[in-house]
């Protein structure tokens, strides 16, 4: 019976950690959450090792019958940023640590968090349009540039959302996104829809910028998780290079066609 409970707790903790990593959390938060959950159910004898794409959690259970080991290894192949989920799991782990939650409740709540419906694509598209239009004006474009930029942001993000479900390299997907929005921006500039080509492209770059990877890289490295930090830096670099190449290729093509 005792043994059974500890297995459930370890399953719960490693699942919480996996969901956190999938949603784009930093390593320290994952390890804190797992150890808080384990401590709340009085599991002290364990080892935990976390990487950007894996959690290794092993505990030693001593009982009258002898020692028994229980190990969970989670691999996290892909990540999709979902800060709302991180917040929800944070609240859950806070409640567990304060003893407000039994194991049954905790399992149910985690299940609910996992199965929470994803945001409707149309809302994300509208948000992207809003963000890119506002960024365009913020960096010095005028109102018409902002509107064109918002329209382009709406269009190219349709493709970006499609790409999220595939396992293609991020270098390729961001590159293709870059080609799409740069092409649309150059064409609208050529036909006189907008006046500042650079501002329109910048506005559309901003939603793709790897802000989360950068911040996580810094925090992981500051916390001493150099390996995970390096992985995040490479992730951010790959996305940045993808955007730059995508935009650059379209600029070269359209310059040689004489459209800019």
């Amino acid at each position: 019976m005792e043994n059974d409970l500890s297995i459930r707790v370890i399953d719960l903790a490693s699942k919480a950690g996996r969901l956190l990593l999938e949603s784009g959390s930093d390593i320290t938060r994952v390890e804190d959450t797992i150890s808080h959950i384990l401590a709340a159910f009085d599991i002290r004898d364990y080892d935990l090792y976390t990487l950007t794409n894996g959690i290794f959690l092993s505990s030693l259970n001593k009982s009258k019958e002898g020692k028994s080991d229980y190990t969970r290894i989670n691999t996290i192949p892909s990540q999709a940023t979902n800060l709302g989920r991180i917040d929800a799991i944070n609240t859950l782990s806070r409640d567990i640590a304060d003893g407000k939650c039994t194991i049954d409740e905790a399992e149910q709540r985690l299940e609910k968090i996992q199965n929470a419906p994803p945001m409707k694509p149309i809302i994300r598209l509208l948000a992207t349009a809003l963000a890119s239009g506002a960024f365009c004006i913020m960096f010095g474009g005028n109102l018409i540039d902002g509107l064109v930029c918002a329209a382009i942001g709406f269009l190219y993000y349709i493709v970006a959302i499609r790409f999220e479900k595939t396992q293609l390299s991020k270098l390729l997907t961001t590159g293709v996104c870059g080609v799409i929005f740069a092409t649309l921006a150059i064409l609208s500039f050529h036909f006189g829809l907008c006046q500042n080509l650079d501002k329109v492209i910048i506005g559309d770059i901003m939603p793709l910028i790897p802000g989360l990877s950068t911040v996580n890289a810094v925090r992981d490295i500051a916390a001493g998780d150099y390996l995970s930090g390096a992985v995040r830096i490479i992730d951010a670099l790959v996305i940045t290079v993808g955007i730059a190449v995508g935009v650059g290729v379209s600029i070269i093509v359209f310059t040689s066609l004489g459209l800019i």
């Binding site: 940023t81 809302i123 994300r124 809003l130 939603p207």
Partner: peptide, 11 residues
């Protein structure tokens, strides 16, 4: 507005 929109993208 830009920050607000960016936040919605990341849920």
């Amino acid at each position: 507005l830009s920050t607000f929109g960016y936040c919605i993208i990341f849920n």
